[in-house]
Design a protein around this nucleic acid. Sequence first.
DNA 1: TTCCTGTAATATGTCGGAGTAATTCGGAGA
DNA 2: TCTCCGAATTACTCCGACATATTACAGGAA
Lengths: 254, 254
Amino acid sequence: MAKEDPSLHGDEAETGASAKIARGPGRRLHGAIAHKLGTAILSGQYAPGDVLSGEVAFAEELEVSRSAYREAIQVLTAKGLVESRPKAGTRVLPRTRWNLLDPEVLAWAFAGEPDIQFVRDLFELRAIVEPAAARLAAQRRDKEDLRLMKEALAAMRRHTLATELGRAADRDFHNAILNATRNDALQVLSASIGAAVNWTTQYKQRARALPRNPIPDHVRVYDAIAAGDTAAAAEAMGALVDLALEDTASAMGG
Amino acid sequence: MAKEDPSLHGDEAETGASAKIARGPGRRLHGAIAHKLGTAILSGQYAPGDVLSGEVAFAEELEVSRSAYREAIQVLTAKGLVESRPKAGTRVLPRTRWNLLDPEVLAWAFAGEPDIQFVRDLFELRAIVEPAAARLAAQRRDKEDLRLMKEALAAMRRHTLATELGRAADRDFHNAILNATRNDALQVLSASIGAAVNWTTQYKQRARALPRNPIPDHVRVYDAIAAGDTAAAAEAMGALVDLALEDTASAMGG
DNA sequence: TTCCTGTAATATGTCGGAGTAATTCGGAGA
DNA sequence: TCTCCGAATTACTCCGACATATTACAGGAA
């Protein structure tokens, strides 16, 4: 088994052979353990049905207390990744039980090499949800919503998408649209997917610099929403996500 | 899974002095605490920004050990409901941070009197996602998928929706459709929403007996998927969820 | 007033042990 | 030989006390 400690932290002084857990400044110990186990499960290192070696054995191996290990297991259980029962141990649940839309699970899924099929699924879901969100936004937006969108759009123009500020403005733009839908469930879902999908942006940028100027497409979405044109808003947003899909697909070689 | 509500609310003789936790046979202690706190938060008993009284104080009040309390807090933290920092206590996070699509959070939201607006949001999301799922299913289904749908449909005819067996067949039908989409993310999302929405079925039935025969509408969906007619499948499924929405809305007085 | 620093309050991490539930395996009966 | 049943084993579950780390807050200095 690979003893690789993927980017937890390099500031580990000792050269221990054990897979010791090093926690960063902000990160809590059980959080670090949960991250380690979560990424291991999401990356397929543990298959569904596998049992994580006993509580005491595992805690010993990681050189942490059983309490810390247990709290980490609680987190994984809460996300539907594992289930632990007396005598039987802690087993990895089938994939259908996982809360794949949980932001943290999504982050774990993208921590290593993301599964192409899963990325495709997410884009597909996004292509379903985002245009519908734009349609609702076109129905329900008020002046304040439009002001926020316009502001974000201006910021996107000033800084390009190549800068962190520009990407933040992009997120602001989409958040403003989601906010205008007045639908909490939709908002949470879309934010999760959006964050995960944006994780793939790094791949995109690695492949080649920004493939084209995305501003006009954003403006089209804004105009349609401002005009209250539901069909046009959905159509324009659909084009926007299709664009992102193409770029990412070509960058990932899918 | 159909988990019966162990109803740890009603069977409490004591009045007010101590909010003692009574856990059912299968339920673990920290699970019961998480359920109690989760429903309290979802029902608005704790507003975002409120701090849950100190760890020791709270554990004492509930007459449980700190370990059990802390593990419960880990669960809530994992679902984005709360955040705890040293000295500052455990605070309820703003609603936008909650994982509203988590099955357990959804269950908590529907444990008491469900928020009308939230129910409406969920139905809206369902009306977006399910037709799209049917469209994908029409594209990608194979013979095995169709066989499962047909089987579920037959079971729905035999038992009516008034029986538990009939409702199980209804779930099977929808699950078969989701399965045919070959999209894990979509599947998880739709299953969560579907389960939550079906929770409202009890309200529906309380208002009046089945308002109309839903079988023909299901058959329309099946026929469209079997024929590979994407547009018809989406349209038929849209009609189905609209029907459910109307029934529930009138039953809830919304 | 503003900034800094020290302290107290509170959550986090650790430990070992008792309790409990479920799997497993052996034995009895058919 | 097969099935059923009970007891031992085993691993999770819960507990309470102790040690540590972090940080909000207050009080003093510039």
